[in-house]
């Protein structure tokens, strides 16, 4: 029997994988993919909770999260392309002209 706990644990694992990816990867696109993974982990948790609570709000939220993720992807990839045009790299260790 698969219960809400299974879904929430899966979502927590996915979220953690995303966070670790953001922290240890060095390619801007991979980091961005890890952020998308985090957002999708959240979506999973929303849908699971919505089903469990028998409420529509969580499912509604997922649609907005997906929309926002799509908008973010458009803007984010454009920014990465702009960086690549000027610098020819998207390794974030090399993108360091400003330091405190």
């Amino acid at each position: 029997m698969i219960t809400i706990t299974h879904y929430l644990v899966l979502s927590a694992i996915l979220f953690t994988v995303g966070v670790i990816g953001v922290l240890i990867r060095r390619n801007a696109i991979i980091i961005f993919m890890c952020i998308e993974l985090m957002l999708n982990a959240v979506n999973l948790s929303f849908v699971a909770c919505a089903h469990y609570l028998n409420s529509m709000q969580g499912q509604l939220f997922v649609f907005f999260t997906m929309t926002v993720a799509a908008a973010e992807a458009a803007v984010g990839l454009a920014i990465i392309v702009a960086v690549f045009r000027n610098k020819e790299t998207i390794n974030i260790d090399d993108i360091n002209i400003m330091k405190w």
Partner: peptide
């Protein structure tokens, strides 16, 4: 470009946390 990339990556990262908080 660099400022924008940094703001975007960290901003989206923070959004992930905010959203996860909301879902919990």
């Amino acid at each position: 470009n660099e400022a924008s990339l940094k703001y975007f990556l960290l901003g989206a990262f923070a959004t992930g946390f905010l959203l996860y908080g909301i879902s919990l």
